[in-house]
Computed example of a mutant assay.
Amino acid sequence: MLTHEREITEPVELCLPDGRLNPAAVGWTRRPLHRANLRGWGRAKRWEYWGVVTPRHVVGLVASSLDYAGVHGVYVLDRESGEEWGRDAVVPLGRGAVMPDRSGVGTAEARGGGVAVGTREGPEGTRLRAVAPGIDVDLVVAAPAGRESLGVVVPWGPRRFQYTVKDVGRPVRGRLRLPSGVYEVGGRERGSGGEGGPEAFAVLDHGRGKWPYRMRWNWAAGSGGGVALQLGGKWTDGTGMTENGLFVDGRLHKIGDEVEWSYDRSDWMRPWRMRGPRVEVEFRPFHEKVSRTELLVVGSETHQCFGYFGGRVRADDGMWVPVDGLVGWAEEARQRW
């Protein structure tokens, strides 16, 4: 059941000296090995997105530099009450945004418009700090020894390409300060609304590349009980690469087949289905988050639904692994950028 895609096992630079895609960089990894040595201005996109799921809350943090602007955001959902808090900011030309050229090292920082988001790698793992009106996020995402992530280079052509790292299901602890109270994350979560269960996890989306003007993608990620799921679609179609994978006890099972997504764009809360030779998954949302941005010639619309997964995914040894009860999200994003 092993994927046909090439596994990269040694450090490699994403770009050639002239800024074009390095053919040797096309493939996938079990740990970050690419250096995103993007050159020049124009169509280059860099971002760090962290999604955190706790028994009580869902947190989304983004810091980005998109050439013409930095788009940063902090979002929190209370899963019990349905209450949402957040702030998005657009900073012209991405001024002040710091984006390291390697995943898992250094510091990323972005601020403006009442939002500050930062990540710093250290001995304990990744520290996440974010501040917005009424919100203060201070979390540490552990990096257990031997745990694998999924890195992929998607080639649309020599001058249009994307490097992504998806690290799904990492344990997280720390504190959330919200208008509704202070909540401890990790172990058992306590706050003004009571306590939840023991499991809290974080998901990283590290992105570096040069994109076409228009693009649409699907992304799903979920975790629970030692199993984590990462699925993508549309943006990788026809490139020979996918960002699909299953994690079992921290080990990546890379899935090279494209996955077919079906969902109702007139009712995002209806079940979503993902199907492929190794994927038989249904996703049932409990909340929809809608984000829209319009800045003249650029714009975006994202429908991100949080919910529960069910079904099964086939591991490298051919055995089907149940994914029933995994919690996370599925989304559709449309970009003009």
Results as ranks from 00 to 15, higher is better:
residue 79 R to Q: 13
residue 7 E to S: 07
residue 84 E to F: 09
residue 84 E to R: 13
residue 173 R to L: 02
residue 151 G to Y: 12
residue 136 D to W: 09
residue 271 P to L: 01
residue 214 R to L: 15
residue 197 G to L: 11
residue 233 G to Q: 05
residue 254 K to R: 15
residue 221 A to D: 01
residue 323 V to T: 02
residue 81 S to C: 02
residue 307 G to P: 04
residue 156 W to E: 08
residue 202 A to R: 03
residue 133 P to G: 06
residue 55 P to Q: 05
residue 158 P to I: 11
residue 324 D to I: 04
residue 190 R to H: 10
residue 270 R to H: 11
residue 211 W to D: 10
residue 59 V to W: 04
residue 155 P to V: 11
residue 98 V to M: 09
residue 37 N to W: 10
residue 255 I to F: 12
residue 30 R to C: 14
residue 37 N to L: 12
residue 258 E to D: 01
residue 70 G to S: 08
residue 71 V to A: 07
residue 186 G to N: 00
residue 55 P to M: 06
residue 33 L to R: 09
residue 20 R to L: 08
residue 92 P to K: 10
residue 198 P to D: 11
residue 313 V to P: 08
residue 316 D to F: 03
residue 19 G to C: 04
residue 224 G to P: 03
residue 105 V to Y: 06
residue 141 V to N: 07
residue 220 A to K: 09
residue 61 L to I: 00
residue 106 G to V: 00
residue 22 N to G: 13
residue 50 W to Y: 15
residue 67 D to G: 11
residue 143 A to K: 11
residue 140 V to N: 04
residue 68 Y to M: 05
residue 92 P to R: 15
residue 42 G to S: 06
residue 228 A to L: 08
residue 149 S to L: 07
residue 144 P to A: 06
residue 58 V to F: 13
residue 272 W to C: 09
residue 287 H to G: 07
residue 203 V to A: 09
residue 1 M to G: 14
residue 108 A to Y: 12
residue 211 W to L: 14
residue 336 R to Y: 10
residue 227 V to W: 08
residue 304 Q to K: 15
residue 277 P to D: 04
residue 8 I to L: 15
residue 330 A to F: 08
residue 32 P to E: 10
residue 78 D to G: 10
residue 132 A to N: 02
residue 178 L to H: 07
residue 208 R to W: 12
residue 234 K to R: 15
residue 281 V to A: 05
residue 171 P to S: 01
residue 123 P to G: 07
residue 22 N to M: 09
residue 293 T to D: 08
residue 27 G to P: 00
residue 200 A to R: 04
residue 278 R to I: 00
residue 110 A to E: 08
residue 150 L to H: 09
residue 297 V to L: 15
residue 310 G to V: 06
residue 85 W to C: 05
residue 277 P to I: 02
residue 162 Q to I: 03
residue 292 R to N: 08
residue 26 V to T: 13
residue 162 Q to A: 07
residue 211 W to A: 09
residue 139 L to Q: 02
residue 11 P to D: 11
residue 153 V to F: 14
residue 90 V to R: 14
residue 45 K to G: 05
residue 214 R to H: 13
residue 19 G to T: 01
residue 140 V to D: 09
